[in-house]
Simulated assay, not measured.
Amino acid sequence: MKSLVTSWQVWAFASAGFAALTAIFAKIGVENVNSDFATFIRTLVILFLAGGILWFGGQWQPLASISMRSYLFLMLSGMATGASWLCYFRALQLGDAARVAPVDKLSVVFVAVLGALLLGETLSLLNWLGVLLIAGGAVLVALKA
């Protein structure tokens, strides 16, 4: 049996749980705070948390051991993350967390499409049905009834 520590499913489920807490905590936190400044505070917390994990886990890596290609794509990923967080916090400031978070999770749909187009990943018909259901569910939750 696969160890829980090495199971991507366990880590993905934990990520979803923490993402849910992120939405709730952020919605409360952006009250009376500029959403961009709130994103800055969040980023500082993440920087210190990630740094602490690396430090105490002895996982620091020489900067020269990372390829230029990896640096490029990690920087692009960081810029996309920053843009996503800025947009997410602004959306939370303006809308209900219960509606903002599902629309934000349309990223799952975008990843499936981009993964297929840009990375050559393949999904079965059943997988694509799931992607369509995620898209439809996000739209239905976002609607103001």
Rank of each mutant, 00 (worst) to 15 (best):
G130D: 00
L47N: 03
L129G: 03
F110P: 09
G137E: 07
A101L: 12
G58Y: 02
Y88W: 11
Y71S: 03
A98E: 09
V100S: 05
L123W: 11
I134H: 00
V139L: 05
K105V: 01
G130M: 01
N34A: 08
A50S: 12
M68L: 14
A101W: 04
Q61D: 06
R69C: 06
W85G: 05
L63G: 04
A80M: 14
I24C: 03
M79I: 14
T122G: 12
L117M: 13
L126G: 09
L86E: 02
L4H: 08
Q61R: 13
G137P: 00
L118V: 15
S35F: 11
F110G: 10
F37S: 04
T43C: 02
L143Q: 12
V108A: 15
L72E: 10
G137S: 03
A80F: 15
L47Y: 04
I24H: 04
L125F: 15
D104W: 02
F48T: 10
D96K: 14
L126V: 14
W11E: 07
Q93M: 12
F18N: 05
A14V: 12
L118S: 10
W60E: 11
W8I: 10
M68V: 10
L54H: 04
R69A: 12
R90Y: 13
G137Y: 00
L129M: 07
D36F: 14
P102Q: 06
Y88I: 01
L63F: 05
L21W: 03
A116Y: 14
L106N: 05
L117T: 10
A23T: 09
L44V: 13
F73V: 10
L118P: 08
F37D: 03
K2N: 12
L117G: 07
Y88H: 10
E121S: 07
V30F: 00
I46W: 08
A80T: 14
V111A: 15
K144F: 11
W55F: 15
D36L: 13
Q93H: 12
L4A: 15
S70I: 06
G52F: 02
G52L: 02
L54I: 06
A112C: 08
R99S: 09
Y88C: 01
V108E: 12
S3R: 14
F89Q: 03
S77N: 13
A23W: 07
F13R: 01
V10T: 03
A101P: 02
A80I: 13
T22F: 14
D96Q: 14
V109H: 08
N34G: 01
E121G: 07
L123A: 03
M79E: 01
K2C: 09
A91P: 11
L44W: 06
F48G: 06
Q93I: 02
C87S: 13
C87L: 15
N34K: 00
I66Y: 04
F89V: 00
K2G: 09
G58H: 02
V5P: 01
A98Y: 08
A145V: 09
W60N: 11
L132V: 13
F110M: 11
T43H: 01
A12D: 04
F25L: 11
K27P: 02
A91V: 12
D96P: 08
Q9A: 15
L123T: 03
T43E: 00
W55Q: 11
A116F: 14
G57S: 00
Y71A: 03
D96E: 15
A142T: 02
